[in-house]
Design a protein around this nucleic acid. Structure first.
Length: 729
DNA sequence: GAAAAGACCTTTTTT
DNA sequence: AGGTCTTTTC
C-alpha cells in the first residue's frame, strides 16, 4: 500500500502519525483540517484497527458527508467508520437503549418550533401569564440550562426569586410533558444519552470498548453536555483527538464553551499539541487582513497563519449610499465579472439582509440560492405532512396530533381541541386516547370519530413512505389546504412533491445498504438536517448565507455585505467584551472564506424593520491596515424605493452625523470613545433623563464605557453611561 | 367555526 | 415592512 501521508506537509504528517493518547490539533482556517482527519483515520486503519472501532464526530451533516466522501476516496472504497454529528450519533444510540429511561424507541424529535408549542401549552396548564414567561424566552432559557447540564431540580435549588421559582416549575412541567409525548427536544438528544450512560455503566462500556479512536471536529464549538459525552466515551482508551480553532469559536450563544479547547491540555494530561498554521486557501492580502483583525482579541491562543500564495488582490472596500445601492452593486458586479456563479458567495451577519440582495440578483438574472432562513422542513405544508407521519409513528405525540387534528379543516375547532386537551391532561392520557374517548365529554363526536378512523386507517396502511405520504394527501384531501392563490398553491404543491422525492431517495439509499427504510429513520434524518447540509458546489448559482452557515466552506469570490456598526458587530454585542470578541471571530471566519477576492460593502442608510437606520462602517474595518485595502466608491445607481425621495433620506443626517464615506476619510467611525468617568457607585440614588430617580444596581464595564443597571421602583433598566444622562442625587 | 381585522414582534447567529 | 398570532365580527 502506498504511503498514506505522502501528500501531507511535515506538520500534518506528524498529526496523522500521532495516534495514541490525547491530541489537540489547533488548525487555523484553511489549513487542511479535514485532510488531516481523513488521512489519520486511514492511517489508523492501515495500522490494523478495524473501521468500526473508529468514531469521528462533526457538527453538521454536511461536514460528516464531506468527510465520508473524502475518506472513501483515500481508501478506494466504502467503510464502516462512524462519522456522524453529535445529534445523529446520540439518536442512534438512543433508538437502541432509550427504553431503559422509560421512553419508547419510537420517540419523536422536536425542533425548536415544536418545543415552543409544547412550552406554550405547559405555561397555560400552569396558569402562568405568558407576559411573565413567554414560550419563546422559556425555550431559550431551557436550552441554555440544558447545554450546561442543569436539570429542573438543580435550577429549583438555585432559584432565588419568585420569577425564577416559577420558571423552575415550567421547566419541570415541560420535561414531564416531553416524556408524556414520548418526545425529545434537540438538547435532550445529548442529555438523555448522558443520562443513559450514567445510569447504565454497562451500556457505556459497550461504546467505550467499541470506539477505540475518537476524533472530534470543530471542538471549539462543543458545549458542556457534548464535552461530558466525549469525556465519557474516550475515558477507556483515551485515544482522543480534538480538532479546532479557538479563533473560529462562534457559537458561544448556543452554549459552546471556548474553555473546552483552551483548557484541553489541562483536562487531558499528556496531551500532544500540534498547530497547523499554513493556510492553503487565501491569497496573502486576504489572509493578512484576517490576521490583523483577529489579533485584537485578548482571549485566544497566540498564533498567526501564513501562506505561500501570492499577494493577490487587495481587499475591496465599497461604500454605498443605501442598502438598495449596495444590493445593486453586488448583483451587477457579479454579473459583469464572475461568470462562474458557483464561485461567488454573498455573506451577511443576519438573515434579514438577504432580501435586498435577492431583489437585485433577480433583476439582474443572476441565479442564486439562499441557505438558512426558512428551512425547507419548516414550511407549513411540509410540517403538516411530517406531523401526520409523526403521529403515525408515535401516536402519543400530542404536539403533532394537535397540529393536524383540524388540518385540513374538518370542523374540529379550537374550543373542542382545548376541551380534549384539558381532558387528556386531567386523565393523564395521550391526546389521541382522549380523542378516542371524547364521547365522555358530551361532545358531538361524529367529526372526531371520523378523524380517529382516518388515523386508524392510515396506521394500517402498508406501503413505502412515499406511498404513505401520497395516501395521506389523498385521504385528507390536503390539497384544499394549499390556498386559492394559484402561484402559491403551485409552489406548495412542488414542495410536497419535493418531500415525496426525498422520501423516495431515502428509501433507495437504504435499499442500497440492504437495510429496511423505517419511518423512524426517515423522520430522524429529516429532523436533524439543516439547509446548509444540502449545499452543493458547482451547481451554477451564487450562494447566499449567514457567516455562521458559511463556516467550513470556501469561495473564490466573497462579498461580505452590511459591514457596519450595529450589524457586524451587532448592537447587542456592544455592552460586553466577550460578545464583541465573538463578533470579531465571526468576522475572522467571514474573511477567511475568501480564496481570491474579498469585497466588504457598507450602506450608510438602510431600511430595517420598516425604519431607516444610519450605520457607520464596522470597527473591524479599521483593524485592517490601509495598505491591504482598495477603496471603491460607487455612484448611486438605483432609484430609491417607491415614494421615498433619495434626497429626503439624506436630509435626515444632522451635520454632526453625516458619515464621511468617501475613501477612508470617515474619521469618527464610532460614537466618540471619550473616556467615561462615573460619579456614582452601586447603591447610589441617581436621576436618569427619561425615567427619573432610581437606585444603581450594577455597573458593568463595557469597553471604555459602562453598562449601568438602574432600579426605578421595581422597573429595571439598563443604560450605557456614555449615552445616557445619569447623575448622582 | 371561519373570515377579517388588529396586535405584536421581529432580526444574531442554529444542531 | 411583513409575517404570525390573537381578537373580533359575522
Amino acid at each position: 500500500m502506498s504511503d498514506i501521508t505522502k501528500d501531507l506537509n511535515q506538520i500534518q504528517r506528524k498529526a496523522v502519525l500521532h495516534t495514541e493518547g490525547p491530541l489537540l490539533l489547533l488548525s487555523g482556517a484553511g489549513s487542511g483540517k479535514t485532510r488531516v482527519i481523513t488521512h489519520r483515520i486511514a492511517y489508523i486503519m492501515e495500522q490494523g484497527t478495524p473501521d468500526y472501532n473508529i468514531l469521528a464526530i462533526t457538527f453538521t451533516n454536511k461536514a460528516a458527508k464531506e468527510m465520508k466522501t473524502r475518506l472513501e476516496s483515500i481508501l478506494n472504497g466504502p467503510n464502516s467508520v462512524w462519522i456522524s454529528t453529535f445529534h445523529s450519533l446520540c439518536a442512534r444510540i438512543l433508538r437502541v437503549h432509550i427504553d431503559k429511561l422509560g421512553y419508547g424507541s419510537n420517540f419523536t424529535i422536536y425542533d425548536s418550533t415544536d418545543s415552543q408549542r409544547l412550552l406554550r401549552e405547559c405555561i397555560r396548564e400552569l396558569n402562568i401569564s405568558e407576559k411573565v414567561h413567554s414560550a419563546k424566552s422559556a425555550a431559550n432559557k431551557i436550552s441554555n440550562l440544558k447545554d450546561g447540564l442543569m436539570s429542573p431540580a438543580d435550577y429549583e435549588r438555585i432559584a432565588t426569586d419568585i420569577k425564577d421559582k416559577t420558571f423552575a416549575k415550567i421547566y419541570d412541567h415541560y420535561q414531564k410533558a416531553l416524556f408524556k409525548n414520548n418526545a425529545l427536544d434537540f438538547d435532550d438528544i445529548i442529555l438523555k444519552t448522558l443520562e443513559l450512560f450514567a445510569n447504565n455503566p454497562r451500556v457505556l462500556e459497550i461504546y467505550q470498548n467499541r470506539f477505540r479512536y475518537i476524533m472530534v471536529d470543530e471542538y471549539q464549538d462543543t458545549n458542556i453536555a457534548q464535552y461530558t459525552l466525549i469525556n465519557m466515551l474516550a475515558n477507556l482508551h483515551k485515544n482522543l483527538c480534538v480538532v479546532g480553532d479557538d479563533d473560529q469559536s462562534i457559537y458561544g450563544w448556543r452554549g459552546a464553551n471556548i474553555r473546552n479547547i483552551l483548557d484541553f491540555e489541562k483536562d487531558f494530561p499528556g496531551t500532544k499539541v500540534i498547530k497547523l498554521e499554513q493556510n492553503y486557501r487565501s491569497t496573502e492580502y486576504i489572509l493578512e487582513a484576517a490576521n490583523c483583525v483577529i489579533r485584537n482579541n485578548i482571549v485566544r491562543k497566540d498564533k498567526s497563519l501564513w501562506t505561500q500564495k501570492p499577494k493577490g488582490e487587495k481587499v475591496i472596500y465599497v461604500t454605498n449610499l443605501n442598502d438598495i445601492d449596495e444590493g445593486s452593486f453586488v448583483a451587477k458586479t457579479i454579473k459583469d465579472n464572475y461568470t462562474t456563479y458557483s464561485d461567488v458567495a454573498v455573506l451577511y451577519r443576519k438573515n434579514s439582509l438577504s432580501r435586498v440582495m435577492e431583489d437585485h440578483l433577480v433583476r439582474n438574472n443572476v441565479p442564486y440560492k439562499v441557505f438558512g432562513g426558512v428551512r425547507f422542513y419548516d414550511r407549513k405544508e411540509i410540517k403538516d405532512i411530517l406531523a401526520y407521519l409523526t403521529v403515525l409513528h408515535n401516536p402519543k405525540d400530542g404536539v403533532a396530533m394537535r397540529r393536524i387534528v383540524n388540518v385540513p379543516k374538518r370542523g374540529i375547532g379550537s374550543v373542542t381541541v382545548d376541551k380534549i386537551a384539558a381532558f387528556a391532561f386531567q386523565s393523564e392520557i395521550s391526546f389521541f386516547d382522549a380523542l378516542k374517548n371524547s364521547s365522555q365529554l358530551g361532545l358531538k363526536t361524529k367529526k372526531i370519530d371520523d378523524f380517529v378512523s382516518l388515523i386508524e386507517h392510515l396506521l394500517e396502511f402498508k406501503g413505502s413512505i412515499s406511498q404513505l405520504i401520497t395516501e395521506i394527501i389523498k385521504k385528507t384531501d390536503y390539497e384544499q389546504e394549499l390556498g386559492d392563490d394559484p402561484i402559491e398553491h403551485e409552489g406548495r404543491l412542488e414542495n410536497i412533491q419535493e418531500l415525496i422525492n426525498k422520501a423516495t431517495e431515502f428509501e433507495e439509499s437504504y435499499e442500497d445498504k440492504e437495510q429496511t427504510p423505517t419511518l423512524a429513520a426517515f423522520l430522524e434524518e429529516v429532523s436533524l438536517v439543516a439547509d446548509i447540509d444540502t449545499y452543493d458546489k458547482d451547481k451554477g448559482y451564487v450562494s447566499l448565507m449567514t457567516v455562521h452557515s458559511a463556516k467550513g466552506l470556501e469561495f473564490p469570490v466573497v462579498f461580505l455585505v452590511g459591514f457596519e456598526e450595529g450589524i457586524f458587530p451587532g448592537q447587542q454585542s456592544y455592552t460586553n467584551e466577550t460578545q464583541l470578541e465573538e463578533e470579531r471571530r465571526l468576522c475572522y471566519v467571514a474573511i477567511t472564506r475568501a480564496i481570491k477576492v474579498l469585497y466588504l460593502t457598507t450602506a450608510a442608510t438602510r431600511l430595517q424593520n420598516g425604519r431607516t437606520i444610519h450605520n457607520m462602517p464596522s470597527r473591524f474595518l479599521r483593524e485592517i491596515p490601509e495598505e491591504l485595502i482598495e477603496n471603491r466608491t460607487v455612484k448611486p445607481i438605483m432609484p430609491v424605493k417607491k415614494g421615498i425621495s433619495k434626497f429626503a433620506e439624506i436630509k435626515k443626517f444632522t451635520d454632526e452625523k453625516v458619515p464621511k464615506i468617501i475613501g477612508r476619510n470617515y474619521k469618527p467611525l464610532l460614537p466618540p470613545p471619550k473616556d467615561v468617568t462615573l460619579d456614582f457607585d452601586v447603591g447610589d440614588t441617581v436621576v436618569q433623563g427619561k425615567y427619573g430617580q432610581g437606585t444603581v444596581k450594577e455597573i458593568y464595564p463595557a469597553g471604555k464605557d459602562y453598562e449601568v443597571t438602574i432600579d426605578f421602583n421595581g422597573k429595571i433598566k439598563k443604560f450605557m453611561a456614555n449615552f445616557s444622562k445619569i447623575e448622582k442625587v
